[in-house]
């Protein structure tokens, strides 16, 4: 959580990334514990480095060896920090 305040300017929702861009997950903005838990099981939690593979019809990201498809609602709750 403390990472959030470090450089707030480049923290953006995952939905704003383009295919090929890399980023680091900063936070997952949801109150839904089940969702958080399941996403965490895929490795989606703060600190994970991801790369966007595709944006439409679903957002597909690569996290480690895992490829995950997400709809845009969930992707918009995942806040990432762009690696420049």
């Amino acid at each position: 959580m403390e990472q959030k305040s470090k450089n707030i300017s480049v923290n953006i929702p995952l939905t704003m990334l383009k295919a090929g861009q890399e980023a680091k997950i900063v936070t997952v903005k949801t109150e839904d514990n089940q969702k958080l838990r399941k996403l965490a099981a895929f490795g989606i939690f703060p600190g994970t480095e991801i790369q966007v593979i595709q944006c439409y019809p679903s957002i597909v990201i690569q996290a480690g060896f895992t490829q995950i498809a997400l709809d845009s609602e969930i992707a918009s709750e995942i806040i990432v920090n762009l690696n420049n």
């Binding site: 399941k38 995950i68 498809a69 997400l70």
Partner: peptide, 9 residues
């Protein structure tokens, strides 16, 4: 329900 799913190789 939101959609999220692993795409296995």
């Amino acid at each position: 329900a939101g959609f999220y799913m692993e795409l296995p190789p």
